[in-house]
Design a protein around this nucleic acid. Structure first.
Lengths: 200, 200
DNA sequence: CGCGGATTTGGTCAACCGTCCAAGACGCTG
DNA sequence: CAGCGTCTTGGACGGTTGACCAAATCCGCG
C-alpha cells in the first residue's frame, strides 16, 4: 500500500464503511468488510481507529451533518407558500427515491445507537438536529409568505419530521411510490390549512 | 429438564426470544441467549428449530398478529367521531408508553427482515397488515358517524400508519411525551377536518 | 417386560468477530 | 548517512456464534 497519512486513511475508511452499510446493512459492516471495501490490509483499521465503535460514531455524525445540509438546500427557493411547500416535500421525496439505501442505513444506525450504551445521545442529537432544520424552514417560509402558523412551530416541526419519517419507512418496506406521494400531498395540504394571516 | 413436547418447547423458546429482544435488542438475541433465558440446554434449540432464522420468522409473525389484535381492541368503543378519534389515538399512545421495548423491537425486526434475503415479504406483510387494520377502523368510524372521508381511505390509512410510526420513533429516541401528545392531537384534529357529510 | 420413537444433553466443530502486536519499511531532518 | 517518528503488514489471540452429533434417557404400547 502506498504511504498515506492516518488522517486521510480515516476518511477513506469512513467512506468505505458507509458504502458497506448501504450495500449490506450496519450489522454486516465488520472491520474486515470495511477494510476490504477500502482495499486496505486489516491492520490499518486499529491504527486509524481505537475501536469499531469510534468508526461508527464518526459515520453517524457525518451522515447526520450531510443529511442536514442536503435538506437545507433541498428546501430552498421562491414562490408562494403553497408551491413552496409542494416543491420542498417533492424535493425531499426525490432524495428518498434516489438513494433509499442511505435512508435505510439512517434508521439502522439510529436503532443501533439506541441499544449501545453511551450512544443514545448521538441518536438524540440526530433527531434534534433534524427537527431544528424543519423548524427553521417553517419559520422562514412563514416569514416569506407573511403568515404565521396556527400551531406552535416546535410541534409542527416534530409533526413534519414524524410524517416524513413514517412515509419513508413505509416506502422502504413496500416501495409503493404512488400512494406515498399521495400521502405527501395530503401532508402538504394539511400544512397549508395551518397557515393564517399574521396577527398584530 | 423435565420432559416436554417439542411443540410446547417451541412456544417457550419463542416467548423467551421475545423477552431477550425487548431487553437487549434483536442482534443480541443469539441462540445461546434465548436458550439461557428459557433455562434450557443449548442442544434444545436445533431440536425445536431448523435454524435461528426459523425462530425469528415465528417471532415476527406472532408479534405482528398480537399487535394487530391489540390494535383492534384498542380502537373499539362508542361516541361521536371526534371523541372516538381522540380516544383511539390516546389508547394507541398508551400502549407505546406502556411497553416501549416491544415497539422498538418491532422496528428492529422490520429492518432485519429488509436485509435478510427471503424475509422482505414478511416485512411487507407486516406493514400491509397494519394498514388494513387502520383502513377497517377508518371505514367503521365513518360508518358509525354517518360521514365519508374526503380522501381515499387507503391513502388515509397509509397516512395514519406513517404518522403513528413517525411519532413513535421520535419518542423512542427522545422520550418527549409532552410534545408527542401534542402532535398526536394535531393529527386527530386533521383527521376530523377530513370528514364530510355523506353524499348520496 | 421389552421394544421403538421421542426427547435430552453436553461437547464439538468451523467460521467469524474485534483487537492487538512485533517487525519491518518508509521518508524527513539534522 | 544515521536516526527517528510515522506508517505498513501479516499473523495471532481469545471469545462468540450457528450448527451439528452421538450417546443417554424417557415413556407409552404391544
Amino acid at each position: 500500500m502506498s504511504r498515506m497519512a492516518a488522517k486521510d486513511r480515516r476518511e477513506e475508511l469512513i467512506a468505505a464503511a458507509l458504502r458497506v452499510m448501504i450495500r449490506e446493512g450496519v450489522v454486516k459492516a465488520t472491520t474486515r468488510a470495511i477494510v476490504n471495501e477500502a482495499k486496505m490490509p486489516l491492520g490499518v483499521f486499529h491504527y486509524c481507529f481505537n475501536s469499531r465503535e469510534e468508526l461508527l460514531q464518526e459515520v453517524l455524525t457525518r451522515f447526520t451533518d450531510a443529511t442536514v445540509t442536503a435538506a437545507r438546500k433541498t428546501f430552498e427557493g421562491e414562490g408562494d407558500l403553497g408551491s413552496r411547500i409542494t416543491r420542498s416535500l417533492g424535493a425531499f421525496w426525490g432524495t428518498v427515491e434516489l438513494s433509499p439505501g442511505e435512508h435505510q442505513v439512517s434508521y439502522e444506525l439510529t436503532h443501533y445507537a439506541l441499544r449501545q450504551a453511551g450512544f443514545e445521545d448521538l441518536a438524540r442529537r440526530q433527531y434534534q438536529h433534524y427537527r431544528e432544520v424543519h423548524q427553521e424552514l417553517l419559520e422562514e417560509a412563514a416569514e416569506a409568505a407573511g403568515i404565521e402558523w396556527a400551531v406552535p412551530v416546535p410541534v409542527l416541526a416534530r409533526y413534519l419530521n414524524a410524517v416524513l419519517d413514517g412515509i419513508t419507512l413505509s416506502w422502504l418496506v413496500d416501495r409503493d411510490s404512488e400512494h406515498s406521494r399521495e400521502v405527501l400531498r395530503l401532508t402538504g395540504d394539511h400544512l397549508l390549512t395551518l397557515a393564517r394571516p399574521r396577527a398584530a
